[in-house]
Amino acid sequence: MTTPDHPTFVALLDTLVPPHLEHGLAGAGGLGLGARIAERAAGLLPVLDPVIAELERHEFAALDAAGRDRVVKELDPELAGLVGGLVFQTFVSYYEHPAVVVALGLEARPPHPEGYPLEEGDLSSLEKVRQRGPLYRTA
């Protein structure tokens, strides 16, 4: 039965979104996103049981990153379809994670109440637009 901390499931998450060496970030499994995914999509983990069983047959958790990547990409279409739902949830949970948001150069906070400063921008070229004269048809 697939659980958020099942070693093969964690390895699968790390395969879907691998560690980001440049940013010093763990992958989706290392960030512990399994629990968040289980919370967000309660019905998803049980559906993945046959995927986890197939990966275990390949001793997935013991493979290196390239080996894991190959195994997942060579899953038969039915199992690959099940992984598709997990990819969606993994991307969402990963890019919501505060450490990831900060690594992207953003602030790990909701937009409100602080908001964001925004440059007014240069409107000077509108003078040329204006000089074209009316574009509308009089009726």
Binding site: V17, P18, D69, F91, V92, Y95
Partner: peptide
């Protein structure tokens, strides 16, 4: 991430 996923521009795994 979802824009890239749906359009095939962001893969999972290597190169993500």
């Amino acid at each position: 991430a979802l824009f890239g996923l749906s359009g095939g521009r962001i893969p999972f795994g290597a190169g993500h």
